[in-house]
Design a protein around this nucleic acid. Sequence first.
DNA 1: GCCAGTCTTAGAACTAGTCTAAGTATTGAG
DNA 2: CTCAATACTTAGACTAGTTCTAAGACTGGC
Lengths: 138, 138
Amino acid sequence: MSDLLERLRDRGWRLTAQRRVVAEVLNGDHVHLTADEVHERAGRLLPEISRATVYNTLGELVALGEVLEVSTDGRAKRYDPNARHRHHHLVCTNCRTIRDVPADETTDAPPSGDCFGFRISDVEITYRGLCPDCQAKA
Amino acid sequence: MSDLLERLRDRGWRLTAQRRVVAEVLNGDHVHLTADEVHERAGRLLPEISRATVYNTLGELVALGEVLEVSTDGRAKRYDPNARHRHHHLVCTNCRTIRDVPADETTDAPPSGDCFGFRISDVEITYRGLCPDCQAKA
DNA sequence: GCCAGTCTTAGAACTAGTCTAAGTATTGAG
DNA sequence: CTCAATACTTAGACTAGTTCTAAGACTGGC
């Protein structure tokens, strides 16, 4: 994750305590936190961090392509630091857990039929179903 | 669309002017309106209809499986009456236009690799790219 | 036509996110 | 190391989208 801070500095970022903390909170591969969750966790490390700064920093990370924005339900957006490996999402319809699942040529193929003249640049797939835990409880 | 009203009555729905109007506004196959757009159009036909009623009716239609909820951006949910034909969505990254694109066995296949034990019941695909109009303007 | 109970209403409340203006702190120059 | 320029952060007001509430209105079965 220090690589990330390096990359950001190279892009002209000032390295502030707040940005460090947001980057640290987002560390991990199957992390899909909402902005409020990021704010809450960042607040444990740096109590005076403001919500606006968390939103600003997340927005900047997304703009730089370091973090992905995921909106699998119509609620709060989630922030996914796993931007280096193309992947899709498994979402549990019961407990809303999210897991990354690798993308491949098959999943990323454009639709077989008519694309109505669209020039497709990205394919985003959400697989919905029951996670193992929720299957066990059912 | 009168079929829809029939089906709803069969399920014990009271047929009120408001519900008729919401159903009528949603008529069509490539319609992806926000709740506010539905409210605005419904208001032209029945000026005193309230926003709460529009939300209630849309929610009920979704619960009954007659209408799909689509959240392709992190903004307002859109309501898609094309629930009878499995399909995915093409979204223009520039003008945000949405088009339906038919689903088939290929698009609806579960991920080829490990599903982490999930029992997948639905696949939802968003293809992002430039629509013909926006390509022409670019 | 009457009544029970469902549906609708206006507006308040809530959640997620953005904006603003003033203050603070990082960094590069000297 | 110090300083100034200016990028960054802050609290809190504001907006959009949606849900809730309590009171009144209307539908459909009798």
